[in-house]
């Protein structure tokens, strides 16, 4: 019976759905996390009678045909890139992007990664780095004896050194945007890589048309909404149960067929 295998694809799909939801819930408090959603597609159809085929010698036409589907598969797990709420941290090097755009991070491999997690700090040479110690691009080094750091909404970084009264400009933050940021490739540690689906990165200063602004002293919270996730979890569990009912029904019908001959 095809029904048994079809129901199994349904159960596997809902299992994937629960895995995606559980990852969202686990990252409810991850800085800059964007929730994901699984989307499904139907599998191939087996055609028993094609629409428009003849059903009798006198030329009767089957109007709709008989096509039976083989179940469901995961089409894509895609990222919903809505803005997360901004949380005030008071830390001078914490930055959040309000609007579109990603911070650029230089990986040890030499590649550029992109992130919305702006919980930055300074390393031993005064350079601005991520929580993992990777350099934020373009590299900005704070002078020794810096007493105060100001980052404007347009990304200009100013430092007050020692007893100086006026701050000096030490660098300019840049953001990268993508045509389709839902197509970015997540590599863990809140980092994303450019992919064929996202399109190439366009770098620009914060506040330019199409770019968000940088908020100093804030980080962007995860955009996971617990109520939505729990609701989705309930729906996924019920859908799993319904598919298991199909397995039970198919099994009982097979058992009936076997016991017809006593």
């Amino acid at each position: 019976m095809q029904a048994l295998r079809t129901a199994a694809t349904g159960m596997a799909a809902q299992q994937l759905n629960v895995e995606v939801i559980s990852n969202n819930i686990a990252n409810m408090n991850t800085v800059g996390f964007k929730r994901q959603s699984a989307v499904f597609e139907d599998l191939l159809y087996q055609t028993y009678e094609a629409p428009g085929s003849q059903s009798s010698d006198s030329g009767n036409i089957v109007p709709t045909g008989v096509q039976i589907g083989a179940g469901v598969k995961a089409g894509s797990v895609y990222r919903i890139t809505g803005q997360g709420t901004l949380t005030n941290t008071g830390n001078a090097l914490d930055m959040a992007v309000n609007g579109p755009g990603y911070f650029q991070v230089l990986l040890p491999s030499g590649e550029t990664a992109y992130t919305r997690a702006g919980n930055f700090s300074a390393n031993d040479q005064g350079q601005i780095v991520t929580a993992d110690g990777y350099l934020v691009q373009p590299t900005i080094a704070l002078p020794a004896n810096t007493t105060n750091i100001t980052i404007s909404q347009t990304g200009q970084v100013q430092a007050t050194v020692g007893n100086a009264t006026a701050p000096t400009v030490v660098g300019q933050m840049q953001l990268a945007t993508f045509l389709n940021d839902a197509g970015l490739d997540a590599v863990g540690n809140n980092l994303f890589m450019e992919s064929a689906g996202s399109g190439p990165a366009t770098a620009g200063n914060p506040g330019n048309p199409g770019f968000g602004v940088v908020m100093q002293g804030y980080t962007e919270a995860s955009n996971v909404d617990p109520v939505t996730e729990i609701t989705n979890l309930i729906i996924a569990q019920r859908a799993y149960e319904m598919n298991s009912k199909v397995v039970t029904t198919a099994d009982q019908m097979l058992s009936t067929a076997v016991s017809t001959k006593t």
Binding site: A3, L4, T6, V39, I68, G69, V72, A239, K245
Partner: peptide, 15 residues
Amino acid sequence: ELDITSNNLANVDTT
């Protein structure tokens, strides 16, 4: 018919 119904239920979440 069971095959069709099971395909419907497997696709309860399909866009």
